[in-house]
């Protein structure tokens, strides 16, 4: 049985201008000890689905799911109190902005120790010992002194290490890292990723890595889930994804990697992720897809089988070619063809 099993998760936000579906029927599983990466552009609902899992969305959000099993427990029907026993203990999360994610009014030791106090009921002395131990685990030098430091006395990288220490304080079974390196310097990014990998292999916890950086995915993940506009468009093991992407969006993301650029200009995906008011009918990626045909615009694409990476597409790619595609003449975006 997988550690985390989400089936058909949707999140709707009530907004002043009507409802907005941020996550649309996403399914995913994470096994114990597995690293699953969720990739996609900004606004593709990567963070929202994980925040929904953690119960951290505001009251304007409505969460529906066929199944939301974590460690054998169904999360959907839990009361807030019951969920708080799991959140922060067995399931923890770190965020994008380490500097603003720490409370400026309290010492690092206090903030890490809180989880130990609430979930494990450790006394003051035991908490302090464990906090120092945790700080050493995440590679903070002079941990015994840093316990009493305030967040503003730490750099961004140090703050993220503290956030990680806080998250792993109760030895969670699942750690969700929401773009943990986006706000950091490139050199620090590598260190933080390395630390996460090391802790993951030492503790055997499941790790969900939300990112938009394909380079990070290639180096860390076992399995990748690609999201677009709130939908999961493809899911594959990492090697297969890089070798043979099945969804045109995945292919376009990979083609946009600077390392893979062959022309003088870096390739890009034209347009932006559709928002609340410009949601296309049919396939959500069709306005930006170079293979899109009339059918893509009018009919909602099916989920392909395992062989085709569960691609949400009428013409899933195989070896870079769209299967079943009527040919270049049928595409509705000939201009995109030329750019590519």
């Amino acid at each position: 049985m997988p550690l985390l099993d989400i089936q058909n998760l949707s999140v709707d936000f009530k907004t002043a201008s009507g409802p907005f579906r941020a996550v649309d029927g996403v399914s995913m599983t994470v096994d114990a000890g597995e690293i699953v990466s969720i990739v996609g552009e900004s606004g593709s609902g990567k963070s929202v689905s994980m925040l929904a899992l953690m119960g951290l969305l505001p009251w304007t959000a409505t969460i529906t799911a066929d199944r939301m099993l974590f460690d054998g427990h169904e999360l959907a029907g839990l009361s807030a109190r019951q969920r708080r026993r799991i959140v922060g203990k067995d399931m923890a999360m770190i965020f994008q902005e380490p500097m603003s994610s720490l409370n400026p009014c309290f010492t690092v030791g206090f903030q890490i120790g809180e989880a130990l106090k609430v979930h494990l009921k450790l006394d003051r002395k035991a908490r302090r010992r464990r906090v120092i131990e945790l700080l050493e685990m995440v590679g903070i030098p002079a941990a015994a002194e840093r316990v009493d430091a305030f967040p503003h006395q730490l750099s961004g990288g140090m703050s993220q290490r503290v956030m990680i220490a806080m998250a792993i304080a109760c030895q969670p079974k699942l750690l969700i890292a929401d773009e943990p390196t986006t706000a950091l310097d490139v050199t620090i990014q590598a260190q933080i990723l390395e630390l996460l990998m090391q802790l993951q292999s030492e503790t055997g916890m499941g790790l969900v890595l939300i990112t938009h950086d394909m380079g990070v995915v290639a180096e860390t993940a076992h399995r990748v889930s690609v999201q677009y506009a709130g939908q999961k468009v493809e899911e594959q093991a990492v090697a297969g994804l890089f070798a043979d992407p099945h969804h045109p969006y995945t292919a376009a993301l990979l083609a946009a990697l600077p390392e893979r650029a062959t022309s003088r200009r870096l390739p890009s995906i034209p347009g932006v992720v559709p928002g609340q008011f410009d949601r296309p009918t049919g396939c959500l990626f069709s306005p930006r897809c170079k293979f899109a045909t009339e059918r893509c615009v009018t009919k909602v694409p099916p989920v392909q089988g395992r062989q085709a990476g569960y691609a949400l597409c009428h013409y899933p790619l195989a070896g870079g070619r769209p299967v079943g595609h009527p040919g270049p003449g049928a595409t509705i975006h000939p201009d995109l063809q030329e750019v590519a």
Binding site: M54, L56, A80, R84, R85, I86, V87, G88, K89, A92, M93, F95, E97, S100, S101, L102, N103, P104, C105, F106, Q111, E114, A115, V118, H119, M163, M166, A167
Partner: peptide, 26 residues
């Protein structure tokens, strides 16, 4: 609406503690 309030909630703290300790102090 600050990030550190989300962090406090992600730790599984009670709403009373999140509001009364983490938010009020700031």
């Amino acid at each position: 609406s600050e990030d550190y309030i989300r962090t406090a909630r992600a730790k599984g703290l009670s709403p009373f503690r999140v509001v009364g300790v983490h938010a009020l102090r700031n």
